[in-house]
Amino acid sequence: MMSLLEVKDLQVRVEDREILHGLSLTVNPGEVHAIMGPNGSGKSTLSHVIAGKPGYEVTGGEILFKGEDLLEMAPDERAAKGVFLAFQYPVEIPGVATMNFLRTALNAQRKARGESEYSTPDFLKKVREVAKSLNIPQDMLRRGVNVGFSGGEKKRNEILQMALFEPSLCILDEMDSGLDIDALRIAADGVNALRSPDRAMVVITHYQRLLNYIVPDFVHVMSRGKVVKSGGKDLALELEASGYAQFEDAA
């Protein structure tokens, strides 16, 4: 079986400073991977490079997505092929109604894949269903994208988009930060509902608590730009008890 995502010996620089020093990670369809690690260890950097954010220079290694060279693709092409990144800090887009944004983006992706655009009624029906399951009120969808949304609302809006676009790789960068306990459960339920044999998730978090809700198949510890240890879900419990200090030297 072909891996969904293969990151091999990835080296990345930002403004002449190397941040990822030979990182490798393999993700197969249906799997949920958790990535943990101290602040500044390069977790968000990894997610940005996979999604194709400008400003990062890949100096070594490769990333294959469904066997194709991901680094050769423009970021919108990656999105259309099924790479989704739920941002740690979702941005605000004033004056652009959320509903409009969702439709524009969804149709752009569908078009890039050679699929027909959604009709308005079909689209509305779909959004309403998903929004309801995530406890997102309709009036939020009429507001500008993330404008005046609370931290929790912004995160739920990310999950909403993930559910709508049905990507095959979901990278969730600290989706639990800023969520209260009820919001966390709702968001996690939303993510769990999307688990499927042909979709994989990479969940970046600092807290084992999230992993009680979204139970991972694998846990990786990142430190100083590398994966320094990988294991099963118990590794997260171990980290919770002993912290990252034991891995600092390994990096």
Binding site: K53, A74, D76, V91, I93, V96, T104, A112
Partner: peptide, 21 residues
Amino acid sequence: FYCVQRGLSQEEAVGLVVNGF
């Protein structure tokens, strides 16, 4: 980048942001 990550081309993203503005 947020817009582009969601599938819009760079041009579409600028158009969208400007139209919002």
